[in-house]
Write a protein that binds this DNA or RNA. Sequence first.
DNA 1: CTGAAAGCGCTAACAA
DNA 2: TTGTTAGCGCTTTCAG
Lengths: 342, 342
Amino acid sequence: MNVGRQMTRVTVQDVARQAGVHSSTVSRALNPETRHRLTKEVVERILAVSKDLGYVPNGAAAMLRTQRSKIIGVILPDMTNPVFPPILDGIDHVLDEAEYVAMVANTGKTADHEHLVVERFLGRQVDGLLLAAFSDDHTIEMCAKRRVPVIMLNRGDQRQRVSSIVSDNRLGLSIAVNHLVSLGHRRIGYISGPTGVSTGKLRLEGFKAEMARHGLDADAVAMASAFTREAALNPARALLDRFRDLTAVVAANDLLALGLYDELKSRGLRCPSDISVVGHNDMLFADVLMPPLTTVRIRHREMGEHAARMLLHRIRDNLESIVDIVLKPELVVRESTAAPRV
Amino acid sequence: MNVGRQMTRVTVQDVARQAGVHSSTVSRALNPETRHRLTKEVVERILAVSKDLGYVPNGAAAMLRTQRSKIIGVILPDMTNPVFPPILDGIDHVLDEAEYVAMVANTGKTADHEHLVVERFLGRQVDGLLLAAFSDDHTIEMCAKRRVPVIMLNRGDQRQRVSSIVSDNRLGLSIAVNHLVSLGHRRIGYISGPTGVSTGKLRLEGFKAEMARHGLDADAVAMASAFTREAALNPARALLDRFRDLTAVVAANDLLALGLYDELKSRGLRCPSDISVVGHNDMLFADVLMPPLTTVRIRHREMGEHAARMLLHRIRDNLESIVDIVLKPELVVRESTAAPRV
DNA sequence: CTGAAAGCGCTAACAA
DNA sequence: TTGTTAGCGCTTTCAG
């Protein structure tokens, strides 16, 4: 082990001098890919010296030289939304194994800020981008122009310019409605998320389609301005005020379902005896809500893993093909749904 | 705006040529700090050309030259623990404003892996490190040797080598016990987290101290192997089996409280009528658990913001002084606590 | 106020 | 098998 605090950074040159070789030889010895081209003896000596000196390669220099950073940018709309931590966890896991690192940023809700963050990441030389956010057109164009590999996560690109990995949102809503119908519900409401993003749009379509398939009216629909607990209040009120005969409500995600719970509670309505509720996502703690929430499960961690793997694959093999992976969700029945009272 | 897809990257040289100036002038024009030393006219021309060409500065080159990356490494033990997202959110917010970016990684639980990740981050030239994890001694030494600014978050360094920002854990437990005592409880159990980390250690001490202050026995203590929902099962069982007269249990964090809920439910015990429960952290959704959890609130987002600001401050002003910031937690009374039955 | 020149630390082509 | 050389793109003295 090294003694003495070297104030000045240790470089390949230092290692080379100490080992009595040229710096390029050190570089080769340190790289597992090229190591075999050297004498075993030399490699060992270099490795020993480099450890002894406490050498740490300077990533910036390598980056500049190789034009590859082994950094992946991950852009989320809002980390405090509980669907994202498991996604991030899955991403981290895959990147970690591949010796990549993740740069992570929240983008709030504005396209401008998203744009700024993406630009900042591109300037930091990310090798690829995982977009779980909003993702406005401008952003996607920018990445395309710079030829930066991008995978969209949890949301799809309407114009099919980039690969994506999503849950089958129409199917998810079809499953949810179907469950309620099979319990005997006929008057079913829907709290929709913003339809500007694919998740919101497809789930609403899924709801309407499945209602139609059962010959039911899909008139009790109210829009939330965001996929948050708070944003559910207004649509929940609208629904409950205007459609007195509803026996069940589907929410476009679990956070909206939770906001609906809040409103039910403040009106003294009981779930599921007065109103059945179905969510979507099976977010963390959906099973310990009051009551435990019946919902549609997405495997978020796997989604993150898949996305990261796809991206690395694209980077390494320089693929250009665009694919959409659609994961199939499944129903999780808990205590927020029951047969309607007669 | 630029037309034509430049396959090759745009550099300062390109901008310089196009603007009819030298690359160093471009550099000066692009840097707000040095911009004023140039003719207004020249600056404008350069800015226009650089936008027109779609110039994005190469961070790797700047990093290599300036020896500063504007990257902060953030190391977490486990992103899926709901205390961390708000912390990360706070960090992100501050870094974003300062035009820094965050590299984020999970470290699982092993010191080896943590070590590896920190080394990887140092190699990537992070300007500073925010450690919310485990943080074994080795890691801290390594950072100290390389003179990388570090702030520990949510955990303190026993040996006072680095600055930290934590909640007052002893006070937190004192508040929790005090609340139960004031409700009339005398036989109170405790599910402790691992005492290898400061959070676990200090909370246990806080529990014991406060019990002693009230002249109560602190004999009903069981250890969990981790701060997770699952890890609460064994200690919960041990406590419930061995101490039949308990009327209340404090858990070292909310996840452990949740695991205790699980065990209570499987035994048909009701909370709070049979057993009162108090948690710690006021994690996301503590208010919608069944029953809503009485707990001790830590302002996690603020903690993240403070930590990030402290770190940036240290980096910019090159301070060496070590400080510990201790945030005061507060009690949040919900429905998991009530007076004991007589 | 602007240009010239050097160099951050690394790697990859080419030579030997 | 190893050394030489050049250069990635930027910033920053130093000159002028």
